[in-house]
């Protein structure tokens, strides 16, 4: 691959590169590696590093909540307060955006938020794998939400759901112009939802990778600057991970609301 070949060539020629330095390719840690090949009935369910970290995210999310609520008391401890605050935070989002009819989606929204959040945050651990930097993972989530929205819209409104593409008070002669735009923007929803999360995670980790690349290749008096930046950007990535999980969840709520209550 030409980009990594260029990087390797640079690393070979650069002075002061540590012997046995890891592969100096900022995209290397997005590589999905199959640990165990499994393909029952010809269907590939191999266990890769992405899958393992997905499981870890599930385990950490569930473990933290289970630990926090192991013995709930009326006067909450620290962990219980955090768990309750998380519950109320998501309850607030669902209530604000969808309203009372969103109550039945609450467990799904809650799970979605913490699945994405812990995938984002676990990816920041050194040597870990960021599950949400895989377009196929975010794409799967986004497409599932998109399909669910269409299903809900058709289930609740039948053919009237197509009125979703016709804004109110539109002069009829503008219809041929506006309706395709509306359809395209509707179809772009899962794409933008998936790409936003994937691109944020990929960009952040690539940036960290590039900064570490500089840290390793520069001599000691130049290395502290990119290294300091990696510290700053790691902190920033924690924030980005939260914001992106929040936006992913909130947009999911918005889309569900659009499907439930046609505008």
């Amino acid at each position: 691959m030409n980009f990594s070949l260029v990087a390797e060539a640079w690393a070979e020629n650069a002075p002061n590169v540590a012997v046995g330095a890891p592969k100096l390719d900022p995209l290397h840690h997005f590589q999905v590696v199959n640990y165990v090949k499994l393909a029952p009935f010809g269907f590939d369910i191999s266990i890769s590093n992405s899958v393992v970290w997905m499981w870890l995210a599930v385990a950490v999310a569930f473990g933290l909540f289970r630990y926090a609520m192991r013995a709930p008391t009326l006067v909450p401890g620290r962990m219980q307060s955090v768990a309750e605050a998380a519950y109320l935070f998501l309850d607030g989002i669902v209530n604000d955006v969808i309203g009372p009819s969103g109550k039945k989606f609450f467990p799904g929204i809650f799970t979605l938020f913490f699945f994405v959040l812990f995938c984002n945050w676990l990816g920041l651990l050194p040597g870990s794998f960021t599950v949400t930097s895989q377009l196929i993972v975010t794409g799967t989530l986004a497409l599932s939400i998109f399909v669910l929205c269409i299903f809900l819209g058709v289930y609740h409104h039948g053919w009237k759901f197509l009125g979703f593409f016709v804004p109110h008070g539109l002069p009829p002669f503008l219809l041929p112009l506006i309706v395709p735009i509306e359809v395209i923007s509707f179809l772009a929803r899962p794409v933008s939802l998936a790409v936003r999360l994937f691109a944020n995670m990929t960009a952040g980790h690539t940036l960290l990778g590039v900064l570490f690349f500089f840290t390793v290749t520069l001599s000691w008096f130049g290395a502290w600057l990119p290294f300091g930046f990696t510290v700053v950007f790691s902190g920033f990535e924690v924030f980005i991970g939260f914001i992106q999980a929040y936006i992913f969840t909130m947009l999911t709520c918005v889309y569900l609301n659009d499907a439930l209550h046609l505008h």
């Binding site: 999905v32 199959n34 269907f43 369910i45 899958v51 997905m54 599930v58 289970r66 913490f114 196929i136």
Partner: peptide, 20 residues
């Protein structure tokens, strides 16, 4: 590597959903 990730994303998500 798409197929296995799609499958495991669904499985992980629903396991977490059920547990929570």
């Amino acid at each position: 590597v798409f197929a296995s990730q799609i499958f495991w994303t669904f499985v992980s998500f629903f396991i977490l959903l059920m547990l929570l």
